[in-house]
Design a protein around this nucleic acid. Sequence first.
DNA 1: ATGTAC
Length: 475
Amino acid sequence: MRISELRRIDGWIWEVPRTGAMRVPGRIYADKRLIEDMEDTVLAQVKNVASLPGIVTASFAMPDAHSGYGFPIGGVAAFDPDTGVVSAGGVGFDIACGVRTLVSNLFADDLAGRVPALADALFSRIPAGVGSTGAVRLTAGELDAMLAGGAVWAVSRGFGEKADLDRIEERGRMDGARPEMVSEAAKARQKDQMGTLGAGNHYLEVQVVEEIFNDAAAGLYGLHPGQVAVAIHCGSRGLGHQIGTDYLKRMHDHAAKTGVSFPDRELAHAPIASDLGQRYLGAMRSGINAALANRQILTHMVREVFAEMFPGSRLALLYDVSHNTCKAETHMVDGVPRLLFVHRKGATRSLGPGHPDLPPGLAAAGQPVLVGGSMGTASFILSGTAAAETRAFASACHGAGRAMSRKQAARHFKPRTVLEDLEHMGVAVRAHDFRGLSEEAPGAYKNIEAVADAACRAELAAKTARVRPLACIKG
DNA sequence: ATGTAC
C-alpha cells in the first residue's frame, strides 16, 4: 500500500481520506513499514467497507490487516441499528473463530523431556484436519440446545467447569441465537464435528511465558515467567462456513430482487432492520455459540491429557475471545452512548479496565487480548485499554496477520524445511496435513513483534506478557 | 476457513 494515499495523524494512526462513495474516512492503525507491506487490496477493502450504508465514524484496519473476503482481515466497522447493515462477508466464513488461553500450575521445568510425549498425546486425542469428526455426536435436539447455549451448554454436559464461564466473552453464551435460522445442511455438517480443531491456521499450542511487561496485569491474569500455558485457536467448523455460504447467497438474492448493488460481490449485506438481517444475526449468533462450545469441549480434552501425564496439574481458563463476529454493543460516539452493530473480522475485542462486561477478577487489568502468532513464533497476551474505546470501538489486532497468501506461501516454503526449522527452534510440531505446513510457515506471516508494538503504540491494547511455543498441534 | 468444486 502506498503511504502517499494516507494522511498521517501520528506515527501509528493513519487516515484514508473520504473519496468517491465512501460515507466515512478509513483509518489504519499500524507503523509505516507494516502499511507499506500491506497489499493494495487492503486499502480498496477499507474504502469499500467505508461506503456501506449506516457505517459510523470510520472503516478501520488493525496492524495485522491483510486481504480478506470483502472486509480486510483485521477490519472493524460499526453500523447504526436503524440505517446500517450486517454483512455475512464482514463476519466471514469461520464465524467466531477465536483464541482461548489456559494457564497451568506447571512450569517449563515440570515438562522437562516430556514435551514430545505431550505433543503426541494431544495430537492423538484432539481430532483435527479438514472434515474431521469428534467423539461428541449430537442428536438434532442436542444440536439445537448447543446452538442456543454455547459453552454454558457444554459445561452442563460435563465439558469443563462452571468457573470457566466467567472467563468467556458473553459469559459463555451468546444471547439472541436462533437455531431455527440455521439450515439443516449446516446442522448436518456440525453434528459430528464438536470437539474438533479444524485446519488451516487453527492450532493448539503448549506455550511458556517468556516475558512479563506489566507485573500488575500479569499477576491478575495469573501469569509468571516460565509458566506453562495452552492456547486453543479454532472456530465454528463446518457449521459457521455453511451459515456464511447460505446467507451470502440469500443476501445476494434479496439485493437482486430489491435492486440494491454492492461495492464488491463479497460485501453482500442486508439492513440490520430487515427480516433477512435479523435472520442472519440469529443464525450467526448460533454460530458463535457453536464456536464457544467447541473450544469448551477441546478444553476438557486438553485437561484430560494433562491430568493423565501430569497428575495434580490444573489448567485455569484465562480468557476466551472470538475474532470473527458482529455484535450489538454500546459505544461512545461524539460524547453520546449509542447502540452499534460492530463487525470484527480478524479483530479482537479490547475492553479497558473497569468495563462492566469484564468479570470482577479481570476488571482492574482490562480484558485479556489474545494475539496468536504463527507456528514457532511468540504470541502476545495484551490487555484492553480505555483508549481502545476511542480508537476503534474497543478493538485490537488478533494475530500476526498473513504477509503472504496461502498460495504464495505454498510455492515459497517446503513443508520439510518448515518442520525442520521449527524442530530446530525447539517447537514440537504435530500436523495432520504435512503439505499444509507450507501455508502456515512463520515466514508467511508478519512479524508479531512489530504488530504487537504497533497495536500498543496506537493504544489499542497494552503489553502484558509474551509467550513462546513448546509444542504445536495443527490440523 | 471449508465435506479445498454443484
